[in-house]
Every structure is written in C-alpha cells, then in structure tokens.
Design a protein around this nucleic acid. Structure first.
Length: 435
DNA sequence: AACCCGTGGCC
DNA sequence: TGGCCAAGGGT
C-alpha cells in the first residue's frame, strides 16, 4: 500500500496531526471531535474496537506473512526450537540454523540422545550458548518425565529449562492454541504505539499495561495466527522506523494519529559499552594445539577456547599472554608469533583480542618439544577450565568455540576461500570457510 | 530490579 | 566505523 498520508514532522500540533484526514481517524471518532488532542484521542481508545483490529490484523497476516520453515506443520518441537533460536537472533540466521537443526535432530528423542558437544557445535555462532544447553536438558526432561511427548499444559512447558514466560506462552498458543498472548520486543513496539504507552516499555507500569492489552487482543480460537501476526507486523511494518502507510492497524493507532509513532516505544536506559583489552595464545607442540573447555556456567559455558585473559594496566599484550597461560595452565611459555588483533563487539563491551603464537619453555628433559604430547605430558594445572585437549587443526573444526576464537582458528588453519560467488547457505561450516 | 549472557546485520 | 538492535532467560 502506498504512503497516502503526509509524514508529520515532530512538533506538529495535535490539531494539524489529525485535521482533514478522516481516513486516519479511529473508528467512531467523529469529525465533531476535532481537534484531536492527546486527551480526546486517548479517550477513544482502540480498546473499543478490538474485533475490527483483530480482523484487520489477521487479514493482513494471511496475505503478508513470510513463508518460514516452522510455519508448516506447527509441531510443538518445531515451535519450541524456532522460538528459542530466534531469541535475540535475526530471522535469516535463524532459518538456516533451524533447517540444519531439524536435519540433525528431527525430534525430541533424537535430540535427547545427542552429545552436548554436538549440540553446541551446531549452535556455534548463534551466541547465548545456555540456550543450547537448556534445550538439550529440556529434551531429556521430556523423555524422562513426559514419556517423550511434548507437554501441552502451560505449567509443564514453563517448567522446562530455558523456557521463560515468553517462550512458554508462545509454545502454548502457537503450538497448542491456548488463548495467551506472546509479548516480545515486536509486540511491545506494536502495542506501545497503538495505545501510546508513554513510559519505558521494559519497566512498570508500561510492561503491565502492554501485557494486559496483549491478552485482551487475542481472539478466541485464533491465538496461533494472531500472535504470529502481531510479531510479524512488528518485524515487517511496525519497525523501529514505522511504515505506517503500509500498516493495517494505522486507523486504530493512537500514536500514529498524534504523529508520534516514531517516538514509541519509549526506550529504557542504554548500556554503556566499555572497551576491553584481552589476549589469547595458541600453544603448539608439533602439530598439536592446546585448547581448554570452559566451565559449565558463565560466558561461553562448555565451549572450547585458547587460554587467555585481560591485559592488566602497565602490561604489554605479550606479557599478558605469557602470564595468563601460566595462571590458567601452569605452563611456562614464550611468544613466538604475533597473529594480530581480532575485534569483536558484545552487548556491553567491545573486545580487542591480541592473538599470539606460543611455545613451551623447559621441555621435558630438555629434549624436543614433541616429547610433551602424550608419553610425557607437561605439568598441567587447569584453573580456568574443566578439561583440556591437545588437538589438531582437523579436530578443531569439530569443537564448539566462541566466535572470536573460531575466527582466530580459521585464520591460522583454514585457507581463506577463493572468491566464492555461491551464497554460502548449505551449512554454517561452509559459511565459516568462506568468511 | 539489575545485570549477565553472544552474535552479526544494519545504517 | 560504532552504536543500536533482534521471537528472552536465569540469577
């Protein structure tokens, strides 16, 4: 639908925002009500027109919804995996991971029988790895406590590891048709605009207001379509920069009438991004590479990495690399190569990772370093990991690693692929190789 | 409530 | 480039 209404500049008067545009008026909002002030518009709440709103939304969704792999059969398993995968993850990435996941773990039983390392490897690159560990734990719980059948009642769904209020509601409504809302960031945005919620949406009282409206908007017997439609509208139309000209709910939207849709939702306070200077070192004996498996909890839980840590004040990255290796493994090492810097952005900090090649000092008996591998292991004291391994470049491919460490490993052990024109879509491994 | 947990795309 | 963001959950 073309943009038919003139875009309203910020600061336009409330009267100008609505005068002479009957097509944009709330249903039942007569011309005699003009001028539209914030008070008069709010008085005519969209809540008085819920059936019309519901129908407009469902009609729009029927036409404009994207074809997505989890919108085919709506099995609880697929709904669950897709919902967790898409948490904090962009749709396009989610699709490729989802397809690969379903190929590898087609059902709860297959998943429950899998090794965690394989699950994490498949998840590698998606981040928030506790999601993968929770999914596996939940699959095993479904086998143990629900006879392998995905539970259909909200309380049992909510009791699964990694399933919070959002995901429980999403599964219950989208897979089982329960009359519950799904309130994600998309829906927060849509509702905060329709009802002109003028305080930060993540906090009270806004969160409660939004949730109550969300519940009230769910039509009887159509929660699957409605909830997806709300999220789809937020993803495609009611985006950060709203496309009100294409919105099926524009006629119901208070903030649109007031010309302030782009000022909703009201954001919370922003996180401060702090720079972090860190190091990591690749220790090799012959063709073997030292890696360690991180603790189960905390950052990158159960993932493999090269040892390292922060650069302390007054310390050079080289010094930090040697010190961290001693602290984390007890190995006395020295720097033999500088592999440069990897920069990686996180939600709350920006990492500058200095990467070095290392070798052991004082090898066993003063002989060649190869003697350290198996027959004569180096004296090891792991302090920052649960497990270690002398691995090979080939095996490294099959260990789940954090993105920055994977980037380093690829730069060392994988030739950068020749200019590839194919849309690296088959597997993530291929995408990795063509980066 | 506030903070931690990852990542890559976008502009 | 860098700040912001995306179908949250756990503590």
């Amino acid at each position: 639908m073309p943009q038919t209404r003139k875009k309203l500049p910020n600061g336009v008067s409330k009267k100008d925002a609505s005068a002479g545009q009957p097509a944009s008026l709330l249903p039942g909002f007569e011309e005699s009500c003009l001028p539209a002030t914030a008070d008069t518009v709010r008085h005519l709440t969209p809540g008085d027109h819920i059936p019309g709103l519901q129908k407009a939304l469902l009609d729009w969704f029927a036409v404009h919804q994207r074809a997505l792999p989890w919108r085919v059969s709506y099995t609880p398993y697929e709904v669950w995996i897709s919902e967790v995968m898409l948490q904090q993850t962009q749709m396009e990435r989610g699709v490729s991971y989802f397809l690969r996941w379903m190929q590898r773990f087609p059902d709860v039983a297959t998943l429950a029988a899998a090794h965690e390392e394989d699950v994490l490897l498949l998840w590698e690159g998606l981040g928030y790895y506790s999601r993968a560990r929770h999914i596996l734990a939940a699959a095993r719980k479904i086998m143990a406590e629900h006879g392998g059948v995905f539970p259909s009642d909200l309380a049992s769904i909510r009791a699964l590891p990694g399933v919070g209020p959002y995901t429980a509601g999403a599964i219950a409504s989208i897979a089982f048709g329960e009359k519950l809302p799904c309130v994600d960031a998309n829906v927060e945005r849509v509702i905060s605009r329709i009802f002109d919620v003028d305080s930060p949406v993540k906090q009270e009282p806004a969160a409660g207001v939004i949730h109550r409206w969300a519940l009230k908007l769910v039509p009887e017997g159509k929660s699957r379509e409605h909830n997806q439609a709300m999220m789809e509208l937020g993803a495609l139309v009611c985006r950060k920069k709203p496309l009100c000209g294409a919105c099926p709910l524009a006629a119901f939207c208070i903030s649109h009438h007031l010309g302030i849709a782009d000022q909703r939702p009201v954001p919370g306070k922003r996180a401060v991004i702090k720079p972090v200077n860190a190091v990591t070192g690749v220790l090799r004996i012959g063709k073997n590479i030292f890696v360690q498996k991180r603790p189960p909890s905390g950052v990158w839980g159960n993932l493999w990495e090269f040892p390292g840590g922060r650069v302390e004040p007054g310390e050079s990255p080289e010094q930090a690399s040697v010190r961290e290796f001693m602290e984390e493994t007890g190995f006395e090492v020295r720097v033999t190569a500088n592999y440069g810097v990897i920069r990686h952005g996180y939600t709350t900090y920006r990492l500058t990772l200095h990467c070095f090649g290392l070798e052991l000092m004082n090898p066993c008996g003063g002989a060649e370093a190869e003697k350290y591998s198996e027959a004569c292991p180096p004296p090891l004291q792991l302090t920052a990991a649960q497990q270690y391994k002398w691995t090979t470049p080939e095996e490294l491919e099959n260990l789940a690693m954090p993105a920055a460490h994977r980037k380093l490993a690829d730069s060392l052990f994988n030739k950068p692929a020749a200019t590839s024109d194919e849309p690296a879509s088959a597997t993530v491994r291929q995408a990795r190789l063509t980066e």
